[in-house]
């Protein structure tokens, strides 16, 4: 993909989020304006509680903002129906969560092919793509295991494979390395960085892990629900 095209994947304008914590309002986001463009490899950093998870949830439609507008590839999320949003997520967003969040009753292969099943990809192609992507993330031969039979690092690799297998426009990763040892974390980051360069897939991380920050091409710092700094790297 040509990085000079500058296609806006995500645009957030004046996004605020007020949580209701047992009657006490918590201001998680206080007016965030951000644009993420195709091909980026960007990290949102900030101390715990600065609103990183909240921001990722809102830009992917997993949660609704209190105020403000979020557009995904030019479409305003709040104007999408539940089904449209589901389809949009299925086709355009790959998720990697801090807690892996694999479906416990499904095997590795079933977890990875799940989104393709939803999208109606034929069985033979599903299988081929699962095998290919598991090779990419370095997980050959564990297709038939259940998530509980894998280490944390292996589970996160499955989660990465699941996020990438349908070739989404953007991958959102919420502290993907937080539960991993630094060696495993570094390996996975190298792998994603490589995929970013080779395929142009857009990555947006939230993290406070220096490993991620070092490798990010753009670093956005959140503090108290506001963008404190936004710098290009390299």
């Amino acid at each position: 993909m040509n990085q000079t095209e500058k296609i806006d994947v995500i645009t957030a304008e004046g996004v605020t989020k007020v949580y209701d914590a047992d009657g006490i309002p918590v201001n998680a986001l206080n007016g965030v304006d951000l644009t993420i463009q195709a091909g980026e490899f960007t990290a949102i950093v900030g101390p715990s509680g600065s609103g990183k998870t909240t921001f990722l949830n809102i830009i992917s439609g997993l949660d609704a903002p209190t105020e403000g507008k979020v557009s995904l590839a030019g479409k305003v999320i709040s104007e999408m129906s539940g089904n449209e949003l589901s389809d949009y997520r299925r086709d355009n967003i790959g998720f990697i969560f801090q807690a892996y969040n694999l479906i416990p009753v499904l095997t590795v292969e079933e977890n990875v092919e799940y989104i393709m099943l939803l999208a109606g990809v034929p069985k033979a192609e599903r299988h081929k793509r699962v095998i290919d992507i598991l090779k990419v993330v370095g997980l050959e031969g564990v297709e038939d295991r259940l998530p509980t039979q894998l280490s944390g690092g292996q589970q996160q690799r499955v989660a990465i494979a699941r996020a990438m297998v349908s070739e989404p426009t953007i991958i959102l990763a919420d502290e993907p390395t937080a539960n991993l040892d630094s060696k495993t974390g570094a390996d996975l980051l190298e792998m994603m960085r490589k995929l970013n360069t080779e395929t142009g897939m857009t990555y947006l991380f939230s993290t406070h892990d220096p490993l991620v920050m070092e490798r990010a091409k753009r670093l956005i710092t959140l503090r108290d629900g506001l963008v404190e700094s936004d710098e290009a790297r390299e």
Binding site: L62, N83, S86, R89, D91, N101, I103, A119
Partner: peptide, 16 residues
């Protein structure tokens, strides 16, 4: 609840 949340997050429709 969490499992259903994950299913929805990765693109499962509400009706599904």
């Amino acid at each position: 609840t969490r499992e259903y949340g994950v299913l929805k997050a990765v693109g499962t429709k509400p009706i599904q």
